[in-house]
């Protein structure tokens, strides 16, 4: 039990630090790397909550695939350092952090101060297979078949949409200093 608490606090600190890094670091490239730390810490927390399959999916899907996609786009667009505290654009922009702090305070009070007896628990007794791939797969293919199929269709739509959004359009000028990958691959000099 002590070891579990130790793991929780270490990786909760990792998750919070990663989240703060994402928001506070100016270079988007390092923001993405901070998010990798955050997601990895969250995966360990999922393991502590006996969600083994989701922890694995978190690492494979997020830390593996999605973050690589982010890094490619940051490298492509050229992560420009934007200033952290931009010139104030009206009241809403300046008040943003205060709103966030207010929401944080309110949520914390709601969670800590709520007299929900159930919240103050170690959780239900669960068996060995709780959150295992087998159990998740069985639930997905029986009780949650429709959401499962809808999710797969959503992924298909998103993939097609991304191709449509990012493809080369006729009539639009390429940036003058753009390097065509296919030209480089053919051995030609980049323009």
């Amino acid at each position: 039990m002590l070891f579990e608490q130790f793991l929780f606090f270490v990786f909760a600190a990792g998750a919070l630090g990663g989240a703060l890094g994402v928001v506070l670091i100016r270079n988007p490239f390092y923001s993405v790397l901070a998010l990798v730390v955050h997601l990895f810490s969250l995966a360990i927390l999922f393991l502590l909550l006996t969600a083994a399959f989701l922890a694995a999916a978190q690492i494979v899907v997020y830390t593996g695939a999605v973050m690589v996609l982010y890094l490619f786009v940051v490298a492509y667009v050229g992560g420009t350092d934007d200033e952290l505290r931009p010139k104030p654009h009206g009241l809403a922009n300046a008040l943003g952090p205060f709103f966030a702090a207010a929401v944080a305070l309110q949520l914390t009070i709601a969670v800590i101060g709520s007299s929900l007896a159930a919240l103050d628990s170690q959780g239900a007794e669960v068996g060995d297979g709780f959150g295992s791939p087998g159990q998740i797969g069985e639930a997905l293919l029986t009780k949650f078949l429709l959401p499962f199929e809808a999710a797969s269709f959503l992924l298909l739509v998103a993939a097609v949409g991304a191709v449509v959004l990012a493809r080369k359009r006729r009539g639009l000028h390429e940036p003058a200093d753009a390097v065509s990958v296919s030209e480089v691959l053919r051995g030609g000099q980049p323009r």
Binding site: A15, L16, A19, L20, V22, V23, P28, S31, H38, Y70, V73, V74, V77, G79, T80, D82, L84, R85, P86, A92, N93, G96, P97, F99, A100, A101, V103, A104, L107, T108, V111
Partner: peptide, 19 residues
Amino acid sequence: AFIFCIGAAGVMTRRSPLV
């Protein structure tokens, strides 16, 4: 809750759509 609020603060203050 804390992570959510950090994310919300980021959405409200940062200007690069990537971030």
